[in-house]
């Protein structure tokens, strides 16, 4: 049985080489992973294309504590990429995302903030979070969050999404560590425009890269 296999030389979850483990080896330690992440709190700044998809992925893998922030309502134009459904149109994104996450895993705790984040509120809202996922749409908001997080909490991981509009260009999408705490997922260059709309596949790739990196970093904390 896979559960009873032992792997010689493997020192347990949290090792730097964790990400290179095969799926088979990962399965052996799945219970350990869930244990390790069960007390971690993830902050998600923005519940649109990046935030909704990243949050759903993390809810599925067993993250138990979330802080969600968004001020917006669900619009029909959001359905081409955001993890919402037609019956949720016109409702608040931050609440409906929590509903969808709880539909996957009822055993999670979600703190919802229906507000537009400002530098003053970032400290109060995300203070308890072990890691923050930046999932805003505007460059201005991304800058505000990055500068505020770097100033307030040196070392607290911030995973940003930069450059995910359009179609194709899979090979351009990457994950880079910018400094000691800021990580960037995306192609870093493709801005939203009339001929470069944000669409489910590419936005979803970047959102899931953010979730994947969040999981990897949490296992090392």
């Amino acid at each position: 049985m896979v559960e009873n296999e032992t792997i010689e030389g493997f020192q347990g979850i949290g090792q730097a080489d964790f990400v290179y483990l095969s799926h088979k080896k990962l399965a052996v330690y799945w219970s350990e992973i869930k244990e390790k992440i069960s007390d971690k709190v993830i902050g998600i700044a923005g519940c649109g294309g990046l935030g909704s998809n990243a949050a759903m992925a993390l809810a599925r893998v067993g993250i138990k504590h979330f802080v969600l922030v968004d001020f917006d309502l669900i619009d029909e134009s959001n359905l081409n990429r955001q993890y919402f459904f037609r019956h949720q149109l016109g409702k608040k994104k931050v609440h409906e995302l929590a509903v969808n996450m709880l539909a996957v895993n009822p055993d999670i705790h979600i703190q919802c903030h229906d507000t537009r984040l400002e530098p003053e509120s970032v400290q109060q809202i995300f203070n308890q979070c072990h890691l923050i996922i930046e999932a805003f749409d505007t460059a201005e908001a991304k800058q505000m969050l990055a500068e505020t997080v770097i100033s307030l909490w040196p070392g607290k991981p911030l995973i940003m999404g930069i450059g995910m509009a359009g179609v194709g260009g899979y090979g351009l999408i990457k994950q880079v560590q910018w400094d000691g705490q800021v990580y960037v997922c995306g192609d870093l260059i493709t801005e939203i425009a009339e001929n470069e709309p944000p669409l489910a596949p590419r936005v979803g790739i970047v959102a899931n890269m953010q979730a994947n990196l969040a999981l990897e970093l949490l296992l090392k904390l």
Binding site: G48, D137, Q143, W178, D179, V182, L188, T190, P198, V203
Partner: peptide
Amino acid sequence: DQLVRTDERDNVIVNEGDNVQILHLISGG
């Protein structure tokens, strides 16, 4: 490794040997 905010960029001087990091932000998300 010290943050230089937008309004500080005229006053902070880059000298020989300094490590400068610049991240470009674009909209989308």
